[in-house]
Write a protein that binds this DNA or RNA. Sequence first.
DNA 1: TAATGGGTACTTTTT
DNA 2: GTACCCATTA
Length: 983
Amino acid sequence: MSKPNLENTILKSLNKAQHRAVTSEASTVAILAGPGSGKTHTLTSRVVWLIQHMGYRPSDVIVATFTIKAAREMKERIGKLLGEEVEKKIILGTFHSIARRYLSIYGRHIGLDSKFNIADDGDSKAIIQRICKRLDLKVEPSYAKAWISKKKAKGTPPVNAPKSQKNKQQEHPDLAKCFAEYQDHLERSNLVDFDDLLVKCVELLRKNPECVSNVQTVLIDEYQDTNGIQYELMKLFAQARERITIVGDPDQSIYGWRSAEVRNLYRLLREYPETEEVSLEENYRSSQYILDTSLQVIEEDKNRYKKILRPVHTKCTQPVLRSLGSTSTEGEWIVSEIKRLVMMFGGMLKNEDVAILLRSASLSRHIESSLGKAGVAYQMIGGKKFYERREIKILLDYLRAVHQPDNNDVIARIINVPRRGVGDVTIKSLLEEAEKAKMSLWSVLCKHCRGERRASTNIRANMEQRISSGLLNTIFTLRKKADATTEDGAVTLMDLVDSLLNQLSFKRYLELEYPEEHETRWANVQEFMNLVKDFMRDYSQMDTEELPEIEDVAQTKEDDILGKFLANVSLASDAQRGDADGDKSSMVTISTIHAAKGLEWPVVFVPSVYVGSIPHSRSEDIEEERRLLYVAMTRAQAMLYLSCPLYGPQGLSNKVELSNFVAPFAAKAFAARGPSIDKKVLESVARILSREAPPEKRVFDNLPSMFSPEDDTFPLSPVDPKNSDGTEENGDGHYARAPKRQRKDAEKHSSGNGDQPLFKPYSTTMEESSHFTMSSLPGFMTAGQHQSTLSTSLAAKENQPSGNKKVTKGSTKRDPNQKSLLGFVSKGAEAAGTGPLKANNIGSSSLGKQLPHGSRSQVSVSSGISGRQQPSLDPALAGHKLGGVKRPMRPPVANPGQDVAGKQYPCFSSSPPRQPSPEEPEPDSSKEASTFSRPATVFHSTTFTTAGPRLGVRRPVGMGPAPSLDRLRKPFKPLTMNRPKSR
DNA sequence: TAATGGGTACTTTTT
DNA sequence: GTACCCATTA
């Protein structure tokens, strides 16, 4: 690829700020990017630019992401832009997977056996549980586990600080004991847990910096989610050249519970004072309405660093907050609404455009069952993992035993599976014996059966016989086979699994053990074999995974397929089944909010928005829960639905209340029911999604006769079944709502999609919410007029001073209107007690001043979306223009000026915002959409069966017999269903 | 001592 | 619907 090509393909697809970020020559670049602002696109573009323009060797570039999905997506995009060869050479993956790579190749430099296994969550839990029991420790195993994990994730405390004693006094001494014992156990079993991957990699790179001496640059995605140890790792990766690019958004920091530290942003800026900061402020993803409402949610966090987020799209329809009677009604309503949308949009929206995002995976049950009953296909991302299903876990455990027989936990788990007459008591006794004798359980068993060493545990003849022939024999044969796999390709992983299934008569085992559902389970086994096949295929194509050779540093060749496969399983619990299972196109996506980060959908449902769910009753950080809701809401492109049942999943015993994250402005900011879909809505949505709106006629011609075009199948104010006599006390929804008016609103706003006259109907709501100030709307006239007004106001925005407080002290070269990333972390820094920072508050940009250096370069460039906008201001001009017009730092709710500029903008976006290049489709829909088009999915839990492949429906097991075809075909529910008599 | 049946009490988020 | 504990039976 030549340079001109680069200029055309990559740079053209960028707005100004993105361009700036991509081509920055600063050695450290911090990109601050709100949701939907094209951060992945920017990061990939930068990688491309660094390689093509700066001439970095791909193998000298490290890109670390936080989730596997993000890694995969980035890899794909880079592959498209730079070709497969380059894609393979770049060291790209999650922190954990990169660390694993280094460890398996260089691990022996720190005394790590290269055949180490990864202890997953379950393993760790089991180990700790046993330790606590054995030593009779007075700590909760789960607490101990979290404690240990936190300890590791925090990173290394400064070596010269043994004074940390003061913190220790609070802790139970047993915790430390447990930690030590646990670590010891891991070591003896040659296990490394998730946190250790990072810890040990840090150790390695500290001790042997040569390992990364080749690294030219390091790029980090989702930086706000990095924890202490990851920060260290990042620095160590980059230690040779110290060139780092990070992308992040503090508002989307949702992994605090995993010790993620937003403060790392601050830390980076402090430790790399030359860092160039760029903020991406245009949101290409969501409708203005969605963005506004999401902002309302997040702005309730008073300590948040406020930043600009400019919508590019039209208002579209108002987000919905729906009240339902029960969780199952909620599910039914979602189904009916999905069907309504699909129908009313005449094929423009399909099931695959819909996502249902949940705070916790356990909430999916009702939703799944509703979808299942209605015959809507779905896929579940997150939640219970495929690999955790019993039948799969057994197979994996056997494979792990083959790979590493000294892992006691694994042996203990499979010793009686299939049944060999070995009970818990025996197992426990054997484990203890092994522990005492400092041998592995495996060798205890082997020696005993070979007669070399009599186990002190009583092993009956019958038992011994079965262990010997069943367990030991199987594993021995497989080991032999496995060794053959490494030498030549004659024996494959597939053969290994095959013979495992044979040896165990696994199918028969399942039939005996699970007479009810052995078919499903066997189907899962077959799915597992497909995964193995996929892995083999990928593996053969990718000699990747290797790290560039470095002089004088001995590498260990990693040619152990089984080991790699197992590592892949632990790290990629998110199975890599991309294609092959055919039409995702008809599937609705159900996902946890966490797992949905970085993705987007045209239509998003967020059910169960009640106190206890979000914020979750067990959450420690309310603000993080709020951000979580914000993340969920900002996944939506065109239509957003929240909903809340009267009662939680336990039924009538627990009444729930609408989440306080939305309650304060629920009535104003949300519609009470789904919008009417008319031509205007159709067109507006079409524009956001860059799709073609179907002719209205087609829509209506195809409507079935029974079909209700409105969201009126379920009552707006569900009657409380507990006192359906109409007592007001509990009966009415827990949140204020005026049904009568809602309806009107719905009708009105159905026509409001951005054309000027349509603003009128909104005015009530908007004025009330003080979120908009109509009077200040500059462009309430002709398009031309508007455009000119707009440029000025955009320009103005670029230069607005930073907030009411006027904090800019002018000591830095930073454009006074520019907030520094530092602003973000002021809170965290404060919490950390970082002295001088305490004074700073929200939105203050004065932090920079208090840094030892004032030289940070500051850049935020208006993107001018299509590039045809006004030239963005030279930062040098900063502060000259009408700073007064608007205040960038919004008070809790309003920022009239900014909103005006931003919100009016879409009126002109009827022509495509910017030139989409072939590779890089429309900005607004493309950002993260490609992920979506090929999501990595796991079919959820125990639950799937192919209830009828022809129907393309995956249906949860345990819902009784499959619905009759009749039922599946019936597209819509009768209108009367669930309608209380009272209406 | 192994297997089985019934009862109880939950159910965050992920590498 | 399910993981986890206890009491009973073979």
